[in-house]
């Protein structure tokens, strides 16, 4: 049985509160799982995993076999590795697409965490004129479909010579409204005024206070925000598809090119899909609980 503290950490306060209640009630009301809970969950899990498994089946096969057998055999064949290698070394530069994707995702995620924490610190703990309205403004911007500004954004990028440059994808994502809002909410709870006062007494200016107190206090939420931003950046397609060219592709754009290829070997195409999923899958296995916790915490708060 997990401790409620652990639940709080992984699944947020609401979940922890609920768990505490459940424990107090000695098992709770609907809390005792029945066998069908597991059966149904297994089915759901099967559906979640199936398309990926199907991709692996095709990726481990060869073009002819795939074309002749619309219903693939249920076990993977042996060509996965050779197909993956062939895709990575093909003319569509998958290898640099992987590197580019990692670069873009890491830089944007770090930057979002940094700037969002900075703003979140200010919004939650500092007093300044217009704070409430500015925060409302930030929240309101989340409802603005900024994707629809692609045309002027493209014109701007063309003016500054960033067409086909990774900068054009990185810079617009350096800080997000969601991040600011998220960190504001978190720091509001997690950062006691006493700590700030103490830092101020020690003669820290606000930037130093941020570095010594706010940043460390936001580690948990920062990690979640990092993961969210990373996934978002990794899976982003529309804008990179418009602005990236030639040598500087990210993975989704490289995948699109793979699909529009003129000789289609579906074992290679699906290998490309598998390659694009693996890095994030590894990250997910390592840090998936944080992502789960983040989504649930966000839900209770937001």
């Amino acid at each position: 049985m997990q401790s409620t503290a652990a639940i709080e950490q992984f699944a947020g306060k609401g979940a922890a509160r609920a768990a505490r209640r459940r424990l107090k009630g000695g098992g709770g009301v609907d809390a005792r799982p029945r066998w069908w809970n597991y059966v149904l969950l297994a089915v759901v899990l099967g559906i979640s995993i199936f398309p990926l498994y199907y991709a692996i089946l095709l990726a481990s096969s060869d073009a002819g076999t795939i074309a002749r057998n619309p219903i693939p055999s249920v076990l993977p064949q042996g060509n996965l590795l050779s197909n993956v290698i062939e895709v990575i070394t093909s003319d569509i530069d998958f290898w640099s697409a992987i590197v580019n994707s990692v670069l873009v995702a890491v830089v944007t995620s770090l930057s979002v965490v940094f700037f969002a924490t900075l703003a979140g610190f200010a919004f939650s703990k500092l007093r300044f004129r217009g704070r409430k309205w500015l925060l409302l403004f930030v929240i309101a911007t989340m409802a603005v479909p900024v994707q629809l500004g692609v045309i002027p954004l493209f014109i701007i990028m063309a003016k500054v010579g960033w067409v086909g440059d990774l900068k054009a994808v990185i810079v617009p994502g350096l800080v997000t409204a969601f991040g600011v809002f998220w960190m504001t909410q978190y720091l509001d709870d997690a950062l006691p005024y006493e700590l700030i006062e103490a830092a101020r007494m020690d003669g820290c200016n606000l930037l130093q206070t941020y570095g010594h107190v706010a940043l460390p206090a936001s580690r948990g939420a920062g990690a979640m925000l990092f993961l969210f931003t990373f996934v978002g950046s990794w899976t982003n397609f529309f804008w990179p598809f418009i602005i990236l060219r030639g040598e500087s592709l990210t993975l989704p754009v490289a995948l699109q090119q793979l699909q529009s290829s003129y000789f289609k070997d579906y074992s290679l195409i699906m290998s490309g899909v598998v390659v694009s999923v693996i890095p994030l899958l590894l990250l997910f296995i390592l840090a998936g609980r944080q992502l789960v916790g983040g989504i649930m915490a966000g839900a209770v708060k937001g």
Binding site: A158, G161, V163, G164, G246, Q257, L258, Y262
Partner: peptide
């Protein structure tokens, strides 16, 4: 040598390059 994978990609390259008047 800059080699695009597909003709579509090459077209997009060329159009955006013309639009940006560089590259």
């Amino acid at each position: 040598h800059k080699k695009a994978a597909t003709a579509d990609d090459a077209r997009a390259n060329l159009m955006t390059g013309l639009a940006a008047n560089s590259g």
